[in-house]
Computed example of a mutant assay.
Amino acid sequence: MPAPRTPRRVASVIRLRPEHAERYRELHRAVPGPVLDALSRAHVTNYSIFLRDHTLFAYFEYTGDDYEADMAAIAADPETQQWWTLTDPCQQPLDSAQPGERWVTGAELFPLY
């Protein structure tokens, strides 16, 4: 029996526009089921978003075999695209983001398993 694979741990950050902070909180009190389903189909688990000083920090674990394909499937999902039309105006990418990049991924410096 093969040993269980350690999930890929993904952390990313983006700024929260202060004038949209309450709207963003409100949206995340009731994330649409189809958006959650798209994440599950793409092997995203243990997903959390944290807030501190107008910075959003997201963490999730990826348990699939093809990260790029699964992330592309999320991006292609019509319900998720609609969700992003609501959440994107609340966010401001960091100065270090590349053109067109929103959430920027952080490098894992210390894992404790």
Rank of each mutant, 00 (worst) to 15 (best):
P89I: 10
E61K: 13
F57G: 13
R102H: 07
I14M: 07
A76Q: 06
M1D: 13
E22K: 09
H43I: 10
A30D: 11
R52H: 15
M1T: 09
V104E: 12
A107I: 10
L86N: 06
D88P: 00
R17D: 07
D95W: 00
E101D: 05
R23T: 11
R25L: 14
L94P: 09
V104L: 13
P111N: 09
A42W: 07
A97F: 03
P18H: 11
L27Y: 11
C90N: 03
L112M: 06
F50D: 13
T55W: 01
V13L: 04
S12F: 04
T80L: 09
L16W: 02
L109V: 11
R29D: 01
E22D: 07
D70Y: 03
H43K: 10
L94M: 12
Q92K: 08
E68K: 14
G33I: 08
V31Q: 09
A38C: 10
G100M: 04
A107M: 03
T6C: 01
T87Y: 03
A30V: 06
A73Y: 02
Y62E: 00
V35L: 07
H28A: 08
T6E: 02
E26K: 12
F57Y: 11
E26A: 14
Y113I: 02
W83L: 02
R8A: 06
L56R: 01
M71Y: 04
E79S: 12
A11L: 11
E19Q: 14
L109T: 11
A11M: 11
G106M: 08
D66F: 04
D37A: 13
E19P: 01
G64N: 03
G33N: 08
A107G: 00
S40P: 01
P78M: 07
S96K: 06
W83H: 02
L86F: 11
F57P: 04
R41N: 12
S48L: 14
A75D: 04
A107C: 00
R41C: 11
A3G: 00
V35I: 13
V104D: 06
T45E: 14
E68Y: 01
S40V: 14
D77Q: 03
L51T: 13
R5Q: 07
E22Y: 05
H54S: 14
G64F: 06
Q82D: 05
A76D: 02
L51S: 14
S40L: 15
V104T: 14
A75I: 04
E68I: 12
D77L: 03
L51V: 15
A58G: 10
F110M: 12
A76R: 12
Q92A: 15
E22S: 07
D70L: 09
R23Q: 13
P2L: 07
A42G: 07
F50G: 15
V35Q: 03
G64Q: 03
A42S: 14
D65R: 15
V10D: 00
G106W: 00
T45N: 10
A21V: 03
